[in-house]
Measured scan of single mutants.
Amino acid sequence: NITAAIYDEIQQEMKRAKVSQALFAKVAANKSQGWLCELLRWKENPSPENRTLWENLCTIRRFLNLPQHERDVIY
Rank of each mutant, 00 (worst) to 15 (best):
T59L: 11
G34V: 08
E9V: 06
E13M: 00
K31H: 15
P46N: 03
S32G: 08
A17H: 07
P46V: 15
W54G: 13
L39V: 10
Q33L: 08
L57H: 12
Q11F: 09
L39E: 05
S32W: 09
I10W: 00
R71A: 03
A28G: 11
C37V: 09
Q68P: 13
V73P: 13
L40M: 11
Q12I: 07
L40W: 06
F63A: 00
L39D: 06
T52E: 06
A28H: 01
T3M: 14
E55C: 01
L36A: 03
E44H: 15
L40K: 00
S20V: 09
S32C: 06
I60Q: 00
R71S: 00
C37H: 13
E44R: 12
W54N: 01
W42N: 15
G34C: 05
Y75W: 07
H69L: 03
R51D: 15
V73E: 10
T52C: 14
Q68Y: 06
R61K: 06
R61G: 09
D72R: 05
H69W: 03
R61L: 13
E70D: 05
N65S: 15
N1G: 01
R41V: 09
V27P: 00
A4W: 15
R62P: 01
T3Q: 06
E9L: 12
L64W: 00
I60N: 00
V73A: 15
E49L: 11
D8G: 08
S47L: 10
A5L: 15
H69I: 15
E38S: 06
R16N: 04
N45A: 03
A5H: 14
Q21A: 07
Q12R: 07
D72E: 12
L66Q: 14
F63S: 01
E44S: 13
S32H: 13
K26A: 08
L39W: 05
K31S: 07
T59G: 06
I10Q: 02
A28Q: 01
N65F: 03
N45S: 09
K15W: 14
I10F: 02
L53R: 11
V27C: 06
E38T: 09
E13A: 00
S47N: 00
S47I: 07
M14S: 05
A17R: 09
S47C: 01
G34H: 10
L64P: 00
L64Y: 00
I74W: 08
N56R: 11
W54P: 01
Q12N: 06
N56M: 14
L36Q: 01
N30G: 10
L40E: 06
V73T: 04
H69K: 15
T3N: 15
L64T: 01
D8H: 10
A25I: 05
Y7N: 09
F63I: 02
E49Q: 08
V19F: 01
Q68D: 07
I60G: 00
A4E: 15
R62L: 05
A17S: 12
R16W: 05
Q12A: 05
A5C: 15
T52Q: 08
L23S: 11
I2Y: 01
K15C: 11
P48S: 11
N56F: 04
K26Y: 08
N50E: 05
N50L: 07
I60F: 05
R62N: 02
I74D: 14
V27L: 11
L39I: 14
L57I: 04
T3S: 13
C58F: 10
L53M: 06
N65P: 00
